[in-house]
Design a protein around this nucleic acid. Structure first.
Length: 589
RNA sequence: GCUGGUGUAGCUCAGCUGGUAGAGCACGUCACUCGUAAUGACGGGGUCAUCGGUUCGAUUCCGAUCACCAGCUCCA
């Protein structure tokens, strides 16, 4: 019988794939450690849990594992599986366990975390004994389909202050077919990588001559961004926001007041000297928005005030973290700061959540929210303030019926926040929308409103971004759509394909008709066969291809083709205009 | 930033053990005038990431730097 899952441990029912898969991957990790300790007796073992999509095990080894080592290890693992070793559960004491792992400093650390007198549980398969809560499958033979995928460094205990261990990743499934399908899915998703599509569809580029992490938007992606920005502005104006514009550099004095210089010096670019005064490129928009607010007194009657800006900021991101458009050094936040009274806070948050929902749903995203609470140490503000702000966020989420998870201690040092993460092509999560209740800047800048009592009261400042940054959002948008943007956002919405040169004139006429209806359209007048034109338009992921020939010229018709659907049949041109106009107007997906 | 890997034409990639490079697509020219995913012929294009070393000789071996990829850490 397999051991039951421990009472205190990860919640296995929530593991993607369920408890059975958890057991198998956990056991696969032990088999990996079994093989490694046999083949490389000099390694020290750390630990290895199942993770989303697979498992890993960390080792300390003086020389790195090579790709060939992985093959050797995997081969040895298969022998262990064939041997059908039983996973034997045992309990012991901390002192006994400390003797067993006397030479394993990482295991000793884990032991030290177990309370004195508590039971220590172990699992043995063959010669390999591991300190482990379980649960496992019955026998190594139950690990049916697995594969080692890659090696990478990982800090001991997840802290960059510690030494780096070598982490071997693998994945396991209940059948070879499922494993094959998983690997195939990863391979397929790589085709949607925004960096690959960025090249293929001529969307953006990054240049060594300019610098890493600095994105150049090509005309096509420029149009996608323009459409997203237009949509954003329309909806923000409707929701009572006011557009502001602020400078890209500021005197260091500003960042001394804001505290950025003290707290974010490592992400800010070096100062430049202007007339005896040091200036900095802006890393955030908040101080500038406060300047606008503070340029005069405000009555409680004016609040809430909602300043919105597509604000471009520059941050020094460490070289290893840059990632296409999704993690860059210069980016535009769809930033807004809402100045309100404590009474208004919750309804303002709800308004932000409603707007966020509209933007994300229109772009086709499902999303999940995290409520990030006060950090354990290093935070500003009183407990009462944190409680008030956190509660407002929580109430707003619940009032809007949004499910959320608590990210305990995940807040910024100056603010509790709601974070929303979107997934890229291969399932990596990226933080995009964020809503933060700032407990710091109103104090530092002295941001007040005059109450009905004629006295100054500190404003509540809500900081929020809904796309997050245009760069990251669009990067993920490319991956979600696979470059097939919805018609309203597509750079080119329709390509007219004349069957031959004699139909050019009618093609131009048709293009004009669509253009007059607000459709982005081009005519493919290249000296090519129409098959080639169709093929090229398909590859460029143009949503509509409109074939026209002499027959259409006589009848006033066209023969549109929808990408992914094929020929829609011959129809009057007016009918196509109506169809396109409606699809664009409703921002249909 | 850290650990490991990669760097050959605009793109995708060949190039065995050192003797200065090739394909397909793309691009240009010409011919073909075509009804729903590739018409044909010819042509131009590379200081083999950069710098240094070993060697009679380096795209190939060694080192450094830069960029990129995966992961860790950090973040919009």
């Amino acid at each position: 019988m397999p051991q039951p899952a421990p009472a205190s441990g990860p919640d296995l029912s929530r593991y993607p794939g369920g408890e059975a898969l958890y057991r198998m991957r956990h056991s696969a990790a032990h088999i990996l450690a079994t093989a490694v300790t046999e083949l490389f007796p000099e390694v020290k073992v750390a630990g290895g849990p199942p993770v989303d999509g697979g498992f890993y095990y960390d080792f300390a080894k003086p020389t790195p594992f090579t790709p060939e080592d992985l093959e050797t290890i995997e081969a040895r693992m298969r022998e262990v599986v064939r041997a059908g070793q039983t996973f034997e559960f045992a309990e012991t004491t901390r002192d006994e366990a400390a003797k067993v792992w006397a030479n394993e400093k990482y295991k000793l650390h884990f032991l030290s975390q177990i309370p004195e007198g508590a039971k220590v549980t172990t699992y043995r398969n063959g010669e390999f004994l591991d300190l482990c809560r379980g649960p496992h499958v019955v026998s190594t033979a139950n690990v049916t389909a697995f594969k080692l995928t890659h090696v990478a460094g990982a800090y001991w205990l997840g802290s960059e202050k510690n030494e780096m261990l070598q982490r071997i990743y693998g994945t396991a499934f209940e059948s070879q077919a499922e494993l094959d399908e998983h690997l195939k899915r990863i391979e397929e998703s790589l085709k949607r990588d925004h960096r690959k599509l960025g090249r293929e569809l001529d969307l953006f580029s990054i240049h060594e001559e300019v610098g890493p992490g600095l994105v150049h938007w090509h005309p096509r992606l420029g149009m996608v961004r323009h459409m997203l920005e237009t949509f954003w502005k329309e909806e923000h104006l409707k929701a009572g926001y006011q557009l502001v514009y602020t400078p890209h550099i500021a005197s260091e004095k500003l960042y001394e007041i804001s505290g950025h210089l003290q707290n974010y010096a490592d992400i800010m670019y070096a100062p430049m000297q202007v007339d005896e005064q040091a200036y900095r490129v802006k890393p955030m928009n908040c101080p500038n928005h406060i300047m606008i607010y503070n340029s005069r007194k405000h009555s409680y009657r004016e609040l809430p005030l909602r300043y919105a800006e597509l604000g471009t900021v520059y941050r020094y991101e460490r070289s290893g973290v840059l990632h296409g458009m999704e993690r860059v050094r210069g980016f535009t936040q769809d930033d807004s700061h809402i100045f309100c009274t404590p009474d208004q806070l919750q309804s303002e948050i709800e308004g932000v959540l409603a707007l966020m929902d509209l933007l994300l749903k229109t772009c086709g995203y499902e999303y999940s929210c995290y409520l990030a609470t006060r950090p354990l140490d290093k935070y500003l503000g009183s407990d009462a303030e944190w409680e008030f702000a956190t509660n407002a966020l929580k109430q707003a989420l619940e009032h809007r019926g949004l499910p959320y998870e608590i990210d305990e201690g995940g807040g910024a040092f100056y603010a509790p926040k709601i974070d929303v993460k979107l997934r890229d092509a291969i399932g990596r999560e990226w933080q995009c929308p964020t809503i933060q209740v700032d407990l710091n800047l109103p104090k530092r800048f002295g941001v007040y409103f005059t109450g009905s009592d004629g006295q100054d009261h500190e404003v509540i400042m809500l900081h929020r971004a809904l796309y997050g940054s245009l760069e990251r959002f669009v990067g993920i948008f490319i991956e979600h759509t696979g470059g097939e943007f919805p018609v309203w956002a597509a750079p080119l919405q329709a390509m007219i394909v004349p069957v031959h040169a004699r139909a050019f004139e009618y093609a131009q006429q048709t293009a004009e008709m669509l253009r007059a209806a607000g459709v982005r359209v081009e005519v493919d007048t290249r000296d090519e066969k129409m098959g080639a034109k169709i093929r090229d338009a398909e590859l460029q992921k143009v949503p509509y291809m409109v074939v026209v020939g002499p027959r259409d010229a006589e009848a006033g018709t066209c023969a549109p083709r929808r990408k992914g659907q094929g020929d829609l049949g011959t129809m009057p041109r007016e009918q196509l205009v109506v169809r396109l106009r409606e699809e664009i107007r409703t921002r249909a997906r």
